[in-house]
């Protein structure tokens, strides 16, 4: 099994079909791309043809939405086989999905559903991650999701649950800065508590995204530019974790490539400032 920690890739974007032409005809200042695994788990045609060309030019990571790692339904071996086939084609630096479930009884709700943070759920998820890692022959990377509900039966905090999964299953973490911000707002916890609660050596990727404010809660829609509060939290995350491969995630209201590249440059600038300050502090 591949167990070495993935390298720092720099600053990347989610690959979206609206940007295919600009990416292939120009050379955007993007260090790497994250591809949505399910979009390319298809038989053939233009999407895979374009993906092959982008794989030749950029490092790639794969990001899925339907592994349903926390589901109590049996593991979907057909899905894992198709995911592994795509990984053989793409040769990703890592494969990620979400620490959530998407359905039971053969139904997929196409949503990233929340988990009660119990010892029972933890044992179940750890066992599933280990099995998936055996099938894929590599460590999995799991992302914290945004959530809108908390459950009475939870026995620990989200960050304790996430950390325990990573440590016990020996997997990597994708720290979604926006998701922490959204869940902290919705549930009234401190983003700093979450940050401090996550083991530094497990985090291999950041997601940075926009969201939507509803009446008294925030929905993780990925359809807006990144807001100032999330940028502030990103700065704290970079300060805490050090250099981590960072990606702007935009899934709806997709703007021209230049706009998301500009957001990526902003992330680069923040990470650069944090690194410069760390150097100055070390020199003092």
């Amino acid at each position: 099994m591949k167990t070495e920690k993935p390298p720092f890739l720099g600053f990347g974007l989610g690959l979206r079909p609206q940007h295919y032409e600009e990416i292939l005809s120009g050379s955007p200042t993007v260090d790497w791309f994250e591809v949505l695994s399910e979009n390319y788990m298809i038989a053939g045609g233009q999407p895979l043809h374009i993906l092959d060309q982008i794989c030749e030019r950029y490092p790639i990571v794969m990001h899925g939405v339907s592994m349903s790692i926390a589901s109590t339904a049996p593991l979907d071996m057909d899905y894992l086989r198709d995911l592994k086939t795509l990984a053989e084609r793409v040769n990703p630096k890592w494969i990620s999905d979400h620490l959530c479930w998407t359905g039971v009884h053969g139904v997929n709700l196409h949503d990233l559903l929340p988990i009660p943070y119990t010892e029972e759920a933890l044992n179940h998820v750890v066992d599933r991650v280990s099995k998936v890692q055996d099938v894929l022959g590599r460590r999995l990377t799991l992302e914290n999701v945004s959530s809108y509900v908390t459950f009475g039966q939870s026995e620990m905090s989200e960050w304790e649950f996430v950390s325990e999964v990573a440590n016990r299953a020996d997997c990597w973490l994708l720290f979604d800065v926006n998701n922490v911000y959204v869940s902290a707002f919705n549930h009234g916890f401190s983003t700093d508590d979450f940050l401090q609660g996550i083991p530094r050596d497990r985090v291999v990727q950041f997601h940075v995204a926009g969201h939507s404010h509803e009446d008294d809660h925030i929905v993780d829609t990925h359809d807006h530019p990144v807001c100032d509060e999330v940028w502030d939290f990103y700065r704290e995350a970079v300060t805490h974790f050090g250099p981590v491969s960072t990606m702007i995630e935009r899934d709806d209201n997709i703007p021209p490539l230049a706009e998301v590249v500009a957001e990526l440059d902003h992330a680069r600038k923040i990470a650069g400032e944090v690194a410069e300050r760390a150097q100055l502090t070390a020199a003092e």
Binding site: Y148, F151, G152, Q153, H187, D216, H217
Partner: peptide, 18 residues
Amino acid sequence: SDVKDSTTESRSVLIGVY
């Protein structure tokens, strides 16, 4: 019965998001 109200929203509003 498993979901908690948040400080600002009722549990039925919150489950309604899903």
